[in-house]
Design a protein around this nucleic acid. Structure first.
Lengths: 234, 234
DNA sequence: CATTGACCAGTATTGTATATTTGGTCAACA
DNA sequence: TGTTGACCAAATATACAATACTGGTCAATG
């Protein structure tokens, strides 16, 4: 906690990345608690002591990993939105968000607050995610989308934000209960969800796609800033 | 498993109910594993042996409890739908379903597959819920609703069923992560979800409410039958 | 009959002593 | 200067009795 001194960090980013990569794989596979620092070091091809040149503690390594994951996931999402033809519609955004979850198993674990993967870290009050969670980011997001003409204005933004949350958590929660062969193929599901959201939330005249993308970029930048602030102030 | 002999059961239903009531409260509070049969008996005001006049085992008691809960919840749902003015619309149904969850903490626990409450019972392959879960009940439900003109026909029923599942699980999953004061007031939320579903799924001309209620009654009866069959055949 | 509670075999739990492993440090090294 | 790996205290795992408790039974009871 009271992060003491800004000590000199190694300036080798690839080394840090390799450590995080190794940790990510091990955490997903064995879980945080059952992964040892020594294993992480070995997997990354460095000594155990080197880990502590880059991170103050195992917990801080996890924080850095989560931070990187959040950023990487946001980048994937934004990238998908930019490329997708209807990425600026609300349905397109949701579609891209869910699509982007593939290849981000840690993000899924974060959404699921997976104790197996993160031990009890996520439950700690001082955890990165608790510090970072803006009180009502999603509500502000919905409001911005309404102001930009992407979402119809006759819905309660708080409620709409909550529904979007429900869908996020539902997506990952349902996997633990539903047999794989009961779920529809991913592409059909994503299309269906996009349609569903569009029909429920797009204004009558159709949404302004470019405005939607712009808002998303804006929120991405703000989010980055907020995360940076959170990580600076311990 | 191989349920041996149909032995003579006590014909006193209130006794059985009291046992189930006692068990329900204790399971929700302490969890299945940490609740002893002796406690259940004491709470119900009978001896421990009496429990085994009504149930073959602690597991079977839990099955009976879950069965009762499923039936009671379905009744609550159907009752709410029958009373609610727009209960026959898809939004109304969803609204009523979620409303009915209040006062049914065990149903919430079932949806959440709460290990704390049910121990590892729900995970067992021979558990009641696994035996009872129709392969694609919800899909059939959506299809029936489409045939009856309650849901628009240009959506994939499997996908729509999956989305409804996502919302169910999302509703209960989200509670574990979101602070209470971040969630909108329940009434507003239910109204919002109903609106949301209606806009996404109601056919252009508006749905046939009476047909919706009829279908729901039909499925309720079929479900009861299926559950009865499942409980007879061990 | 229905109902009980003492009783049983098997399983958790506890206590305790020992051995291993862990996150984290730091003098020595390259 | 950047890196290492032997080293440490604390935590955790293991071993193994002794003990307590559990789900489930059944002869005795009223």
């Amino acid at each position: 906690m009271g992060s003491s001194i800004e000590y000199q960090r190694s300036s080798d980013p690839s080394r840090e990345s390799r450590l995080l990569d190794a940790a990510a794989g091990l955490f997903v596979h064995y879980g945080f608690d059952k992964t040892t620092v020594a294993e992480i070091a070995r997997e990354a091809g460095v000594s155990k002591g080197a880990v502590y040149l880059h991170f103050e503690s195992k917990d801080e390594l996890l924080e850095a990993l989560i931070l990187r994951e959040l950023q990487a996931y946001a980048d994937s999402w934004l990238g998908a939105v930019e490329n997708h033809p209807s990425g600026g519609s609300i349905g397109g955004m949701v579609r891209c968000a869910m699509q982007a979850l593939h290849g981000h198993p840690l993000m899924v674990a974060i959404l699921r607050s997976d104790v197996g993967v993160f031990g009890n870290y996520l439950r700690k009050p001082e955890s990165l995610l608790r510090r970072a969670r803006g009180r009502s980011t999603r509500k502000a997001f919905v409001e911005a989308m309404q102001a930009a003409g992407v979402i119809r204005t006759d819905v309660d933004p708080a409620v709409t934000a909550h529904i979007m949350n429900m869908l996020s958590f539902g997506l990952v929660a349902i996997e633990q209960v539903i047999e794989a062969d009961e779920a529809p193929p991913l592409d059909a599901l994503l299309d269906g969800i996009a349609e569903f959201m569009d029909r429920a939330l797009t204004p009558v005249g159709g949404g302004n796609h470019e405005a939607g993308k712009a808002i998303l970029r804006e929120f991405r930048a703000a989010g980055q800033e907020r995360l940076a602030k959170v990580t600076h102030a311990g």
